[in-house]
Amino acid sequence: MSKDWPLWEVFIRSKHGLSHKHVGSIHATDAEMAMNNARDVYTRRNEGASIWVVPSVQIVSSAPGDKGMLFDPSEDKVYRHPTFYDVPSDVENM
């Protein structure tokens, strides 16, 4: 068994942000301590309005080798971008 505490990924939603953003990771014995440590390490300068912590082992990540297969095909599909119609001038907030 590893001597280190388990690793947790930390996501913070800032005061003005709409969604949580990955900010880094911390070690902690369990969920409560992970929350405490995330608060102590990553919100010292008024960054946060909400914290998520997730055990790093629970993150499922795409393999770097699959990059071509997963992402290249979308490169030449410009028609998927909503840029082919005119927005009427009196429509705000598009």
């Binding site: 911390i26 902690a28 405490n36």
Partner: peptide
């Protein structure tokens, strides 16, 4: 003992 405790 660990970085996290140092900060806390």
């Amino acid at each position: 003992p660990v970085l996290e405790e140092e900060m806390a």
